[in-house]
C-alpha cells in the first residue's frame, strides 16, 4: 500500500462515519419528539454532512480518477463503505439516538482536537472546523443522557436498554490498522490509544451521573474498517440511494 492509497482509505473512513451518522440523524427530520430537538438533530446532521463532503472531495482528489463526492456517496455498494458499525445502528427512540450521539461526540471532541494538528493542511483545516462544532454537539448529547438516564423510570429503562445494546459498538472507534500505522508515522493521522483513555474519562462519569450501568463482559463488535456491516446497513443505503438510483444523473 502506497502512502497515497493509505490516505485515500483514511479519508473515506472518516467521511463515511460522518455521512452515515448524518443520514441516521436526518431520519428524525419532521419526526422529532418536539420541535427543538427535531431542529437540533437535523442541525447536527448538517454539520456531519458538511464534514463528510469536505473529506469526500479531498478523497476524490487523492484518488485522482475523476470521481465526485456525490458519486462516492450515492454509487458505492455496501462493502465499500468503511464507517464504524455504531453509526449505522437504528435510531430506535430518542434515548438510543442521543446515547449513540454521546459516544460519537465525545470521540470527535478529542479526536478532532488532535487531528487539527495533522501535517496534512486540508485534514487539519477540516478537523479544526469540525472540532468547534463538535463541542456544541457534545454539550447537547451529554446533558440529555444525564437528564434521561437520571429521569423517570421509563426514561431510565430506555436509556439502560440503549446502553446494553450499543456499548458493544463503542470500541471500534479506537481500532487502528496498517493505514493508521503508515499515516501516524507521517504525522497525518492520530494515535487513537490516548484518545480512548480521554474518551473513557469523559464518558464513564456521564453514564454514572445518569445512573446507568455499563454492561459487563461485552464482546466488542467490529468489521466496519473492512466494509463488513450489520444487517441494518443495507436498508439505510437503500433509502439513501433511492432517488439517485431511480433518476440517475438528475440535477437540480
Amino acid at each position: 500500500m502506497t502512502k497515497q492509497e493509505a490516505l485515500g482509505k483514511y479519508l473515506l473512513r472518516l467521511a463515511d462515519t460522518n455521512l452515515i451518522l448524518g443520514q441516521r440523524l436526518a431520519e428524525w427530520c419532521g419526526t422529532g419528539p418536539f420541535l427543538e430537538e427535531d431542529l437540533a438533530m437535523t442541525n447536527i446532521s448538517l454539520d456531519l454532512f458538511g464534514t463528510a463532503e469536505a473529506l469526500l472531495k479531498y478523497a476524490c482528489e487523492v484518488e485522482g480518477k475523476g470521481r465526485t463526492a456525490d458519486e462516492l456517496t450515492f454509487r458505492r455498494p455496501e462493502r465499500e463503505f468503511t464507517n464504524i458499525l455504531l453509526v449505522e445502528q437504528p435510531n430506535v427512540d430518542f434515548g438510543a439516538t442521543i446515547l449513540r450521539q454521546l459516544f460519537v461526540d465525545a470521540f470527535d471532541y478529542y479526536h478532532y482536537s488532535e487531528l487539527s494538528k495533522s501535517s496534512d493542511p486540508i485534514i487539519a483545516g477540516v478537523a479544526a472546523k469540525a472540532s468547534k462544532e463538535t463541542t456544541y454537539h457534545l454539550r447537547h448529547s451529554e446533558s440529555w443522557v444525564i437528564r434521561l438516564g437520571d429521569g423517570t423510570e421509563e426514561s431510565h429503562q430506555r436509556m439502560q436498554n440503549a446502553l446494553n445494546e450499543l456499548w458493544r459498538f463503542t470500541d471500534e472507534q479506537f481500532e487502528m490498522n496498517e493505514v493508521d500505522a503508515m499515516l501516524i508515522e507521517e504525522r497525518i493521522a492520530v494515535d487513537l490509544a490516548p484518545i480512548k483513555a480521554k474518551w473513557l474519562e469523559k464518558v464513564i462519569p456521564v453514564l454514572s451521573e445518569a445512573t446507568l450501568q455499563i454492561p459487563e463482559n461485552t464482546f466488542m463488535q467490529r468489521g466496519g474498517r473492512e466494509g463488513k456491516h450489520s444487517e441494518h446497513f443495507g436498508f439505510l443505503l437503500a433509502e439513501m440511494h433511492y432517488i439517485p438510483r431511480a433518476y440517475p444523473d438528475a440535477t437540480w
Partner: peptide
C-alpha cells in the same frame, strides 16, 4: 437556554 440548536446551525434558542 431553550435549545442548543435554533432555526439555523449558527444559532441557539
Amino acid at each position: 437556554v431553550v435549545s442548543e440548536f435554533g432555526s439555523t446551525a449558527c444559532k441557539a434558542l
